[in-house]
């Protein structure tokens, strides 16, 4: 079995992504069939953000991965020269 901290982080990830999945499904698939006057619409932003937020997250995530790769490559270069 995994140690305590790993288990906590893992189950937090599972929980968080399940919440995201349920929220997004309600937002995109179910909410168009609900009347505009219903109060549940207060819980969800405009449908434009259903595309904009994941898109922003994707772009930021790719930027983060790219900058991470660049910094690791730059940092490992001097080490290679000494070998």
């Amino acid at each position: 079995m995994a140690s305590g901290k790993d288990r906590l982080i893992g189950w937090c990830l599972v929980f968080l992504s399940s919440i995201i999945f349920i929220y997004y499904t309600i937002w995109v698939i179910i909410l168009p069939f609900v009347d505009k006057e219903q109060r549940i619409h207060y819980l969800f932003p405009e449908i434009v953000y259903a595309v904009a937020i994941p898109l922003m997250t994707g772009v930021l995530g790719l930027l983060f991965i790219g900058s991470f790769i660049v910094t690791t490559l730059l940092r490992s270069k001097p080490k290679d020269k000494t070998c």
């Binding site: 995994a2 790993d6 937090c12 990830l13 599972v14």
Partner: peptide, 13 residues
């Protein structure tokens, strides 16, 4: 994300 979290949580170390 769910798969990653589940594998981290049940990792056999």
């Amino acid at each position: 994300l769910i798969v990653i979290g589940y594998r981290v949580a049940t990792f056999n170390d």
